[in-house]
Amino acid sequence: MYKYIIRRILVFIPMLFALTVMVFALAQAAPGDPFTGRMLDPTVNPEVYQQQREALGLNDPYPVQYMNWMKNILQGDFGNSIYYNGRSVLELISQRFANTLYLGLFSLTITLVVSIPIGIYSAKKPYSILDYATTGFGFLGLAIPNFFFGLIAIYIFAIHFGWFPSQGTVSSNDVTGFAELIDRLHHLVLPGITLGLAGTATYMRYMRSEVLDVLGSDYIRTAKAKGMSSNNVLYKHTLRNALIPIITLMGIEFGVLVSGAVITEQVFNFPGLGTLFLQSITNRDYPVIMSINLLFGVFILVGNLLADIFYCVVDPRIRYD
């Protein structure tokens, strides 16, 4: 097991290296550079942008730029943002990382709490009214675009009823301690539900079909035949086997969760990594684009590794030697 983990981590190294090359090449391949989009203020002399390009080394040949970047990355220096005029990329990312993580975890929690029990229940009583209702809800949840659901939620719950705040992550800096925790959670409710909606629908459908699948298998029939109560069959034998694909899904989701949710973040003005990423792409802010891509890459690799490890926990038949 440990050997397996170490081997997997060693494989990361060439993968990450390949990732840096791709990330760099893709960032540079996009037309324009950090200053082309800015070149449209008639009061600004375009020559200053030329000066800045020179100062930032953007006129150097690509291999030189790549080597400089890699050299700094290896020393733990992710460079400075161009759009944010020299602010450290790490600082920008860390500011938003916490928000993204809270939002992601919160919505994942909602997703799991809602979808797993409903999924199990509708598998237990397939083609019941509740099953049809949740299936309907599931497709609706998948079909409604995030921003639309978000705006509806804001108009109903924030503007009309005034139950939840609609924008931002916290009321003000004056709120501290436990009150701050509550305040932040309060701000998380609407974006969390909005973001969790599609996930809930997906997980619910997965759970239902997996449980149904497992319930039809031979060993379940055996368990039933030897007189086990149906609840026991469900929770002891079925659930664990049905969870495996869900774990795979979550392994992938882990990367997605960290990569943020651009649309939800923007509708609720919830400053997270997604918005930063999008903004850095529109502004061709190379250092930020590349660092965030690397970060996403690492998280997706780690997420998949964690999923593989969890398989062993859930299913003792799976062994890594």
Partner: peptide
Amino acid sequence: MLFILLFSTLLVACGNDEEEETTADNNND
């Protein structure tokens, strides 16, 4: 696990009322 998750959602729900009270007191929000 499920219980903890459920509990934390409950906490959020309770938190709503609490916050409205505190803000009414402070008037700074």
